[in-house]
């Protein structure tokens, strides 16, 4: 891999992507949105789970003995 250098001469050339800007940035853009979206979903899921657990504690629905099911885990 000799002669590795910045391939693009200017910022606008980079964005132009050889005329395929729509397809390349359409791919990268949607992927970025989906990844960020999933990370936000994950955080929301965690918050929901934590509030659910806190509500369970508050309403005293926590089993007294250790663990809550009969099958060994």
């Amino acid at each position: 891999m000799t002669g590795i250098a910045m391939h693009w001469n200017s910022w606008s050339e980079f964005l132009h992507m050889g005329g395929y800007a729509f397809y390349v940035w359409g791919s990268y853009g949607v992927t970025a949105v989906l990844i960020v979206g999933e990370i936000l979903l994950l955080r929301a899921h965690r918050q929901k789970a934590l509030t659910l657990a806190k509500r369970t504690v508050k309403y005293g629905k926590v089993e007294k003995e250790e663990g809550n099911d009969e099958i060994a885990a």
């Binding site: 899921h45 965690r46 789970a49 659910l52």
Partner: peptide, 18 residues
Amino acid sequence: RSIILEREKNSQWVAQMV
């Protein structure tokens, strides 16, 4: 981890942690 919290919400260790 979120699924674990949801399904284990009635157990002691979740209660203590929360």
